[in-house]
């Protein structure tokens, strides 16, 4: 009862605080406590699936990986023992890499054209590029599957790549185009003025200046492609990808080897972020001490 009353006073204080800076030091006490608990709950909510995945990658499982049966490193040491998991993973990587390279190349060229040149039906083209992002994936996947069927194309890795390039291109164009728009045209003019041929200007000036945007677009493409289940399952035929493998396996119980792969990807991504952050901090420090 009295606790509730105190919390109520603390909240009232927190609301009234901006008008009386003298009480600033005491004011957040009760608020911080509530905020802390609330934040912890949100964080736990966000992280539980990841923690679960990592912990159960070490589970000494038998037929299903649902009940904890004790710690083992066997899953990590023999990742490919579970049937099909490594093949599915390799397929996913191959599809993601090829789709990313193709989509980034096409998307970058299109982004430069859309940002730099005027041509007829430009606004119509811009709208059409947005469409694949706005259309539900199920519709896209089913539509593509129907097309492949009509055309008599054998479903497999090639059809998956075609489908992935299609939806990745839109994202690449949007990402790179923003970067092109922010590029000062005088940079390229200076390159031409300093005896750079069109190819030299493109590779030595335009491309390096667009690189951060292109890299972001490529990472996005890779993640979208690697992750995709809906469109893939419509157009994969007998080929298994990592998301598809897990979906199928879920019926029987996902093998811990899948957890191992998922955990490894997570840790790799985390390491990449940390390395770039530390690298940037070191560079900043070096610049400021000079």
């Amino acid at each position: 009862m009295s606790g509730e009353g105190q919390a109520g006073v603390a909240i009232a204080d927190a609301i009234a605080a901006p008008q009386k800076p003298a009480s600033r030091r005491q004011r957040p006490r009760g608020g911080t406590w509530v905020l802390g608990v609330f934040s912890a709950i949100v964080l736990i909510y966000l992280l539980i699936p990841i923690v679960y995945t990592i912990v159960f990658s070490f589970n000494d499982y038998r037929r299903t990986n649902i009940v904890w049966r004790g710690f083992t490193l066997d899953n990590w040491l023999g990742v490919c023992n579970a049937q099909g998991v490594c093949q599915a993973f390799a397929n996913s990587i191959l599809i993601a890499v090829v789709s990313t390279v193709v989509a980034t190349a096409i998307g970058t060229a299109a982004a430069i054209a859309l940002a730099r040149y005027r041509f007829r039906a430009k606004s119509a083209v811009t709208l059409l590029i947005f469409l694949p992002m706005a259309t539900p994936e199920v519709v896209l996947g089913a539509g593509l599957a129907a097309q492949f069927l009509t055309a008599g194309v054998q479903k497999g890795i090639a059809t998956i790549i075609l489908a992935h390039v299609m939806f990745c291109v839109s994202f690449v164009i949007v990402t790179v185009r923003a970067r092109v728009a922010s590029l000062d045209p005088a940079m390229e003019e200076a390159g031409r003025d300093l005896y750079g041929s069109p190819a030299q200007v493109f590779f030595r000036i335009t491309l390096p200046l667009l690189a951060p945007g292109i890299a972001a677009a490529a990472l996005l493409s890779f993640a979208l492609s690697f992750d995709d289940f809906i469109i893939t399952s419509f157009n994969s035929g007998p080929v298994s990808t990592f998301p598809k493998f897990i979906y199928t396996a879920a019926a029987r119980g996902i093998p811990a080897e899948a957890n191992v792969i998922a955990s490894a990807i997570f840790l790799l991504a985390l390491a990449a972020v940390l390395i770039t952050q530390i690298g940037a901090a070191v560079r900043r420090k070096r610049v400021s001490t000079r």
Partner: peptide
């Protein structure tokens, strides 16, 4: 002749130094 073929150089208003 194209810009890169002319014996001319420009100091741009925005300087246009290559940031990279």
């Amino acid at each position: 002749e194209k810009a890169h073929q002319r014996p001319v150089n420009t100091v741009f208003q925005s300087y246009a130094l290559f940031p990279h």
